[in-house]
Design a protein around this nucleic acid. Sequence first.
DNA 1: ATAGGGTTAG
Length: 733
Amino acid sequence: MLHGSKRIISIQVRYYKPRRSLFLSSHVCSATFCSHRLKPIESDQPAEKNIVNLFEHILRQCSTIHQAKETHTQIIITRSDQYAFLAARLITVYAQFGFLAYAKMVFQGIPIEHKSNLLLWNSMLRATQSYGYFAESLRLYRKMRNVGIMPDGFTFPLLVRACASIGNLHMCKLVHGHVLVSGFQFHVHVANELIGMFGKLGFMDHARKVFDGMQFRSCISWNSLISGFSKNYNLEDTINMFKCMELEGMEPNLVAWTSLLSAHARCGKFEDVLRLFREMRLKRNGATAEAVAVVLSVCADFYMSYEGIAIHGYVITGGFQDYMFVNNSLICLYGKHGNMEDSSSLFRQMKAKNLITWNSLISSLAEAGLCDEAFEVFSQLEKSGDSMLQPNVITWTTVISGFSSKGRGNECLDMFRRMLYANVDPNSVTFASVLSACGELAILDRGREIHGHSIRSRLDDNILVGNGLINMYMKCGKLKEAQIIFNKLGDRDLVSWNSMIAGYGMHGFGEDCLLTFRQMVEVGQRPDEVTFVAVLSACSHAGLVTEGQQLFDQMVNMFSIQPLMEHYACMVDLLGRAGLLQEACDIVKNMPMEPNVCVWGALLNSCQMYKNTDLAEVAASKIFSLETRAVGSYILLSNLYAACGSWQNSAKVRMLAKTKGLKKNPGQSWIEVQNKVHTFLAGNALQPGLEEVYHVLGDLGLKMETGRYITDGNAELHEGLYNEDKLMVSANY
DNA sequence: ATAGGGTTAG
């Protein structure tokens, strides 16, 4: 508590190092304190100017909130709080110390008739915005205009920034209108913010117009324009403006270099990023932490482990190790390269962590396939209780897609439900992950529900979501619905076409598959390796031999795609299934790489179909020598022997597989009833609820027999393919 | 009394 002027001054001296100016002013201070006069906002009296300057000086020196509060008390006692200049400084200082509520109190404490000073409003606007309350700052601006105060060159940059941050196009246009009416469009700071705003909105032609109209440009103007082009993935104009800047005698600084780097990174030019980073360090004798983060993320994304570790070295020598976002990139770098030890130890060592830090660790774990660990860290984050560290869309989506890509669809969908319950809005990436899980699980009802949800979120025309929907409907056997989604999709990419082609192929619609492929080529979408795997395998399943051969030829000669192992396997399968075993053998002999299990397996399968025991033995011995756990091959060979009546050989192969401890992953069929998927295993009568099914099945069988339907004699053998024990019985027969 | 650059999910 303060009781008198002497005490006030002694506090000042205790808190701040005594300086000449401070001692001089203390006389003024006590003099003013004694006079107890209320001061108008603007005063030209020198004595009053002095006390205001003194307090302003003290406020600038405050390093704790307590010092600021003490000084504020003195300001009130001396009635100096009526000075707009001091009130503005108090607002700024309180905001800086994290006490926005105090800043507001200062602002509100000033009577409306004294609120004519723009500095006051600008300070309050800035204080509000520094907390991210952009909408509130715009409301404040309205209030300001309502009391008849006109904005100036300090107000407009704040306003432009506020509506750009909110991202509301209407607001942006409104504020831009105010700027135009006030004639501030080419004011350096206002124009710089406008360029930034248009860059963020993706209106680079507007940004360019503002830039071109400026009479004086600062390097910030150039950098804002360059970063606008970079943010909009316009590499060409980013480079052009960078060069223009040099030509006009403005040497691009480190910030301009950083934008140039990030433009290359965004466009996937990872080699150029590394080259430019070296050039930047040479020419400008250093780098920025932001540039380091960009380069690290490029090293992570393109699996350049060696370069990444070298840049980690530079982080330490260059003194960048205390930047949170640099460390976040490092966590991702090590995580993406499968080095979870270094990734998580970096996480542990970080003193200050933000949500991105947590997301980086979670995504590293998910990337490594450790979705349980990722979920564990997610739970820790959820329980942390920090309101700034609550899982966001990215956190949720990371865990959701982690489960999805591991084939744990039910956990994926559970997390999605929880996410909605937590009131976090899914985005296109979330929908894509969840739809993929629905496709894998083939749960049409849930897929449809999510389709509806994506429509309500107005994301159904997004390419990621569209592709997810096509894939989901295809996997659920709803080919027509997939086609409808595909037809409605505004811009289709390679994935959209591949999903359609693969979907038709998957369900044995060879003609539709080829038709879609031809349409794809017609509209100028270049097919890739994946397209040809889908098309070729469709041909082989539909028995379209000549078409398949032609397509293989087209792939190499028309589209200059080097055939991969998969394509050779498809060709062997295609020819072999058609009974052209010799041609299939030729492919195996002439292919440029050592055939793998899939290629030999395709050949073996064909041998089994056409009962070619000699060739089958060659293929089988190759497969067994490759030391894979290709159980299917043992079963195929065994079946072939059995089909040729060579029971002993058949049993021998079976036993061989058994002694090696190999067990076939049994084939399953499924049906979706009331949002639940029921799976069936051949010969598994132990499954609960199956008695009833078998009962119905028995009835049907009886009806079929009495109705003189002929049952397939091979059915039992076929079933045996999926059930080892059962086949062992038939083999020993 | 201002400003430009950055890191996380597919």
